[in-house]
């Protein structure tokens, strides 16, 4: 991030109302330790980071740590709701497509899925706003309120962003689920399940879908980066004060402290979620759980 052009001190000085005269700049540099060598700056940063101090934003002077803590739940809500919606829609449609393989329903779902990955999410967001906010007036066009303050207001404002963000992920889930399920339905154990005379629904859900979930879990792990990227864009369109918007604004404003903080927290979150996905693997696939003693 230090490679970014532009002089932080210049911006900080401008921020605190000072002019660009050399003396003021020098003072600012000293205050934030910017006159120290890079290595020292880095070590100092990490030391403070471990104490929970991520420095101060150069664009508004607020401490970075609390800002991130403030913004994180917003994006977490958006991402989790979108992922849940996408998984429900995608897995359901994928199962149906696999069951209707080669028939009209499969074809329609396939086209819908392709459309889902072809439509840019930010454009979809615009269209949703035009249709449902501007013309029909069902939902607010933008903004955010905390769930704690106003649950209904929070949810109505979340509907359009969640739909916009979920669409492409639902399409990806659908395509993956369709092929996983098609494969599962051709396995020997599905034949066994049929030979046992189990009800069709039991066969599909307990024997077919359960095995396909492993694929879905892998996919979720891989889509994490894309999910964060998607959230950045959607937050921008709907003016949601989330983590993504914080990052984008910070980069555009060359607010190093915020960018560094966000990047670090993202990395930690990523590692945490990866561990969670691994734990879920063990829950879904007994072969992973017992690989130690098998």
């Amino acid at each position: 991030m230090r490679a970014l052009p532009g002089d932080t001190a210049l911006m900080l000085a401008g921020q605190s109302g000072g002019s660009s005269d050399p003396e003021a700049l020098e003072a600012v540099r000293r205050k934030y330790g910017l006159d120290q060598p890079m290595v020292i700056q880095y070590v100092r940063y990490m030391w403070l980071f471990l104490q929970g101090d991520l420095g101060v934003s150069s664009s508004n002077g607020l401490p970075v740590g609390p800002t991130i803590v403030d913004r994180l739940p917003v994006t977490a809500q958006l991402a989790l709701m979108s992922l849940t919606l996408a998984a429900i829609l995608g897995v359901g449609a994928g199962i149906l497509a696999a069951l209707w393989r080669g028939r009209a329903g499969d074809y329609l779902i396939g086209i819908a899925g392709l459309a889902g990955i072809s439509v840019p999410s930010f454009w979809l967001a615009l269209v949703l706003v035009i249709v449902f906010a501007v013309n029909l007036g069902w939902f607010p066009a933008s903004g955010y309120v905390s769930f704690v303050d106003d649950p209904i207001g929070n949810l109505t404002r979340m509907v359009l962003p969640v739909c916009a963000l979920a669409t492409s992920f639902a399409a990806i889930y659908m395509r993956q689920m369709r092929s996983a399920m098609t494969e599962a339905l051709q396995t020997d154990y599905i034949r066994t399940a049929r030979a046992k005379g189990l009800a069709r629904w039991t066969i599909i859900v307990q024997h077919g879908a359960r095995n396909s979930l492993i694929t879905i879990l892998t996919l979720t792990g891989l889509q994490l980066g894309a999910l964060i990227s998607g959230a950045v864009v959607i937050e921008q369109v709907f003016v949601i004060p989330g983590y993504g918007k914080l990052l984008l604004d910070a980069v555009l404003a060359r607010d190093y402290a915020v960018v560094q903080g966000v990047a670090l927290v993202t990395l930690i979150a990523y590692v945490a979620i990866s561990l969670l996905v691994d734990a879920l693997y063990a829950l879904v696939d007994p072969r992973v759980r017992t690989s130690g003693r098998a």
């Binding site: 396995t187 020997d188 154990y189 034949r191 066994t192 399940a193 049929r194 030979a195 046992k196 005379g197 189990l198 024997h207 359960r210 095995n211 492993i214 879904v284 696939d285 007994p286 072969r287």
Partner: peptide, 19 residues
């Protein structure tokens, strides 16, 4: 099936559901 006819398949490895 399962009530009046039972079937034992060739591959006990793949014929049982792994999960």
């Amino acid at each position: 099936r399962g009530r009046s006819i039972g079937v034992v398949f060739q591959e006990p490895m793949t014929s049982l559901n792994p999960v």
